[in-house]
Amino acid sequence: MVVLREGMCPGLDEDLVRDLRAAGIKTVEDVVSSDIEELAQRCAVSYKALFAIRRVLLAQHAAFPVSGADLYEELLSSTAILSTGNPSLDALLDSGLYTGEITELSGGPGSGKSQVCFGVSVHISHRLKQSVIFIDTTGGLAAGRLLQMLRAETSNAEEQMEALQRIHVYRAFDVFSLLDCLHGLRAGRLRQALGGGSVKAVIVDSVSAVISPLLGGKQNEGMSLMMQVAGVLKTLAKDFNVASLVTNHVTRSGGGELQPGLGASWAPVPRTRILLERAEGAADVGHSSVRSATLIKSSRRVRQEGAESHVYLYIYIYIYFI
């Protein structure tokens, strides 16, 4: 279900949304399936205006057939591969993060998920000279931490500041704020905030922090909100040709094995899933900490006997004092 919101299309203003909700019309599906003439009378709005809104909503949310050849040509012309800055992780991801796709890092507390996200942001902004949207849902991102990582890359203060300016941070501490942020980026704030600059990655750390409290039991609304987040992330990745990187918590299966959280409904959303864990028996080296990374899902790599689906990552530890 897609909830009706002000500004979703021309003519759908705050007053009309309020009148539609009063008439029991709360989602796009409700509008599309309603008798427009009857609905116009109930909401005291012109039939012509409501019919136009219905057509736009259908165009935005209905699926249209496309040939496999067209999809393949589009893939070849639009996909870019972004290095994460970590050679071992790049090898596991078949060269790096792919634009137009969602990649997930799952792991428990202290597994290095956020640190990997920070490293990806710094690498894309400094080495690749591209902009990054970083949505922080836990309050764990600090500019000082990014600056420390940049100082390890370059001693040039001007380069450090330029790289920091390419990392655009948003904070969203509940699912509604996250949806507002994602919808705003999709509606044009993405290009406006950058003055026409090039964004190559959208990072959400963590998507599960704002979704998992709403799941479980009979909380159907939580499931609907989770799928709305998934839908907007997919649309952003595809329409803006960016790589989307999200983090997720972990749970244990009936057999006691670690597995990504958010359940079976979320599982098809990421095209690639990586499980991060503390590496047992591996000693830390210098200022780096060793983590185990396991490929548990990939749209490109079929698991074969002897195929590399597990690597060790050396994640540099940065201590930031506030």
Rank of each mutant, 00 (worst) to 15 (best):
L295Y: 09
P270S: 03
R301E: 08
L76H: 03
A243P: 03
I81E: 03
V250N: 08
H168S: 07
M227R: 02
R18A: 11
M1N: 00
P268T: 07
L190Q: 06
V122L: 08
C43Y: 01
G112V: 05
I296R: 12
S208P: 06
L20P: 02
H249P: 02
G119E: 14
S121L: 02
L245C: 06
G119W: 04
G100P: 05
A267P: 11
S121H: 07
E37A: 15
H123V: 11
S292K: 08
M161N: 10
A40W: 09
H287N: 14
G216K: 09
V285Q: 12
G231R: 13
G195W: 00
L16D: 04
M149H: 00
A282I: 12
A157I: 01
E280P: 06
T103L: 10
E74C: 06
G108E: 13
V229E: 12
F134Y: 15
G286Q: 11
A63F: 10
Q60C: 05
L262Y: 12
L178D: 12
L57G: 02
I322M: 06
P270I: 07
L147C: 06
S224M: 11
P65Y: 08
Y170D: 01
V169C: 04
R291A: 11
S309D: 13
F176L: 15
A52P: 07
L82E: 07
R55L: 09
G107E: 10
L245P: 02
V17N: 04
E221L: 15
K129N: 14
P65E: 13
H183E: 15
V3Y: 02
A283L: 09
A69C: 04
P270L: 08
A91T: 14
D19G: 03
S77N: 07
A293P: 02
L147Q: 06
R278E: 12
S206Q: 01
V120K: 05
E73D: 09
L179H: 07
E308W: 07
L190V: 03
P260F: 12
G24E: 09
L275Y: 04
T154W: 00
D90L: 04
V31P: 04
F173Y: 15
S244N: 11
R191D: 12
S106Y: 04
L50F: 08
L141S: 04
A40F: 09
S83T: 12
F134E: 11
Q228W: 02
G195H: 00
H126G: 01
G68H: 06
V242I: 00
L93Q: 11
I296Q: 08
S111R: 03
Q148C: 02
V122D: 01
D90W: 10
E101D: 01
S212L: 13
